[in-house]
């Protein structure tokens, strides 16, 4: 997980998904996640995954990087699939695909939407302390990442992290975390002081969530609705599962065409 890179992607993209409003992208994400929860069909999940990869191609961001970021949960899904192993590769595949597809959906949201915009959408549903904690955490992550980079560099330069000296490495690394914690605490006190000077009275004000719709929003919602409608139709009427292979083929073709088109565009 590279928080800084994800933040860069979210703030510097120019695709339709970047231009769509956070609220409608959250709706798109909710529809896709609901589809993943509802279906247990391997081909449907594979179809959704390929469709999401196609959307990732449309974002004009490095697709392989996005897929790698979203592949992290697969390690743990493998453990779960192993525990549920009953000789069926399809069942194991369903668990792994559910992890990969859900992760890719979430990653697509955050690589195209700055975090504060996502928090703004969630804000009405969360208690004030949590909503504000989310904003402050987001800000603090970047400061700590910078401090961590400096810390690891200085530990390496001063011989604090050397090969085969595991106990010493753990001790130095732990002291480093302790240092980050103390620095972070000092920083939080300064931060609180600064916020007070700027008129903080227990509430961080934001721009609010825009609900108007433009064509980018419509496209995001339409894609979410399309995925959800196809999934729900196969859940309600099992006969539609016969078309699973065609759905898979269509999504694969869309991916190939989109990739070729993007290659020419670049």
């Amino acid at each position: 997980m590279d928080v800084a890179i994800i933040d860069y992607y979210a703030n510097h993209g120019t695709s339709f998904l970047h231009k769509a409003k956070a609220l409608w992208k959250v709706v798109f994400t909710a529809l896709v996640i609901a589809s993943i929860i509802l279906t247990n069909e391997f081909y449907m999940l594979l179809g959704i995954y390929i469709t999401l990869v196609t959307i990732a191609v449309w974002t004009r961001l490095p697709v392989s990087r996005i897929i790698t970021i979203a592949a992290y949960p697969a390690i743990f899904a493998l453990i779960f699939a192993f525990a549920m192993w009953n000789g069926s590769w399809l069942k194991a595949g369903v668990i792994i695909l559910k992890a990969l597809t859900a992760a890719l959906t979430m990653v697509l949201l955050i690589v195209t939407t700055p975090y504060p915009d996502v928090f703004n959408v969630l804000r009405p549903f969360l208690p004030r302390v949590i909503a504000e904690g989310l904003f402050v955490t987001y800000r603090s992550v970047f400061i700590l990442l910078e401090l961590t980079d400096e810390l690891i560099k200085s530990l390496k330069v001063r011989g604090g992290l050397t090969r085969r000296k595991y106990i010493r490495n753990i001790r130095n690394f732990s002291s480093g975390i302790g240092l980050l914690l103390v620095k972070g605490f000092d920083y939080s006190e300064k931060f609180y002081g600064m916020m007070n000077v700027r008129g903080y009275s227990g509430r961080i004000t934001t721009q609010g969530t825009k609900t108007s719709i433009n064509r980018n929003d419509v496209l995001a919602i339409a894609l979410g609705l399309l995925i959800f409608a196809i999934t729900i139709s196969t859940v309600i009427e099992k006969r539609f599962l016969e078309f699973g292979v065609y759905i898979l083929a269509c999504s694969a073709i869309a991916l190939v065409i989109s990739s070729i088109y993007q290659q020419f565009q670049n």
Binding site: V3, V129, E132, G133, F135, V136, T137, R139, S140, V141, I143, L144, I177, L180, L181, G184, F185, Y187, S188, E189, F191, Y192, M195, G202
Partner: peptide, 12 residues
């Protein structure tokens, strides 16, 4: 709130 933010960020 700032302390929650820092500890949460450190955990992340």
């Amino acid at each position: 709130v700032p302390l929650i933010g820092i500890i949460s960020a450190l955990m992340i």
